[in-house]
Simulated assay, not measured.
Amino acid sequence: MNNSFTVIIPARYGSTRFPGKPLVELAGRPMIEHVYRRACASGAERVLVATDDERIAAACDTFGADVVMTRSDHPSGTDRLAEVVERERLPDDAIVVNLQGDEPMMPPSLVRQAASALAERPQADIATLATAIRTRDEVFDPNAVKLVRDHLGFALYFSRAPIPWDRDGFARSGEGKLNAGYLRHLGLYAYRVDFLRRYPRLDEVDIETAECLEQLRALWHGAKIYVDIAGEMPPPGIDTPADLERVRKALANAGN
């Protein structure tokens, strides 16, 4: 079995909540460099940064990253990946891991785990990771995406709502049971290239729009998504400027 994989890091400058986020300084380096180094440490055969911005491309050039310039009109990071695999002429059976450009603390082992989970399951189009939910607040947090798997580990559904719904537990006390098997999705994906080539042609669907979760488009159109339980819990990424100080402290404590 061939376990080689490529990591693609989509990096946009024009984030609505945090413009210029990939270039923000963390421990003396731009954030995109931290993400790139994590990807390289995963054992990936290649690591590519996909961007539509010359400032990000110039920063990547200073630390030797390979950059693929993409269009600026992609509706999602997955569509950006689809352009990259065409430009790079990757074979249909190749595996690509999508590592978000705002994950400077992502453990390299999880990048490798997602790729291996897909390589070991030829029937899957996508592999991703999840972790157990430990608190009631997380169950009800709409920013924490929940999921339900079948007996083989394939995703049945993803939602921002509490799933599975503990009917009797919530009816009796409003508390529910954390032992109902709640899982939180981690936004790290491995794709087969042939699926990435098909993805831009898939119509957007109502459940995807309602939940604001693009993986539901893949499920609705029949894609098989394998969900592995993460070997460790990654620190949160950077969504807003308020997250910066927390990550700076974490990097300093880690000696980066």
Rank of each mutant, 00 (worst) to 15 (best):
P142G: 08
A130M: 11
T16D: 06
R172W: 06
G64W: 06
A252I: 02
E208I: 13
D239T: 04
A11Y: 12
D203C: 06
Q100C: 06
K224I: 05
A127G: 07
I229A: 08
A180Q: 12
I9Q: 10
R121T: 00
F195A: 07
D166I: 05
R160V: 06
P236E: 07
R197W: 09
L183S: 00
Y13N: 02
V247F: 00
L152A: 14
Y157R: 09
L90V: 04
V84A: 15
D239C: 03
W220S: 06
A57C: 05
P122M: 04
D102E: 12
F63C: 04
T16G: 03
D61E: 03
R37N: 04
P236Q: 09
R149C: 15
S42K: 07
L26F: 01
R167I: 08
D53Q: 12
G20V: 00
D125S: 08
V111I: 10
R87E: 15
I9G: 08
V47Q: 04
L129K: 02
L188N: 07
P236A: 06
N253G: 00
V35G: 12
Q215P: 02
F154E: 02
A210I: 15
L118Q: 12
G64N: 10
V145H: 13
V35R: 14
L188D: 04
H151G: 00
S4H: 14
R89H: 11
T51G: 14
T135W: 15
G20F: 01
N3F: 05
T51H: 15
S116A: 10
S76T: 05
D166W: 10
Y189A: 05
E83Y: 06
G14W: 09
D228F: 09
A180S: 15
P30A: 04
D141M: 05
D203Y: 06
R192G: 11
D137T: 01
S72K: 08
Q113D: 02
E54V: 05
A180D: 09
M106F: 05
A132P: 02
G231S: 11
L251K: 02
E54Y: 09
T62F: 01
L152M: 13
T16H: 03
W165D: 06
P10I: 04
F195G: 07
I8D: 04
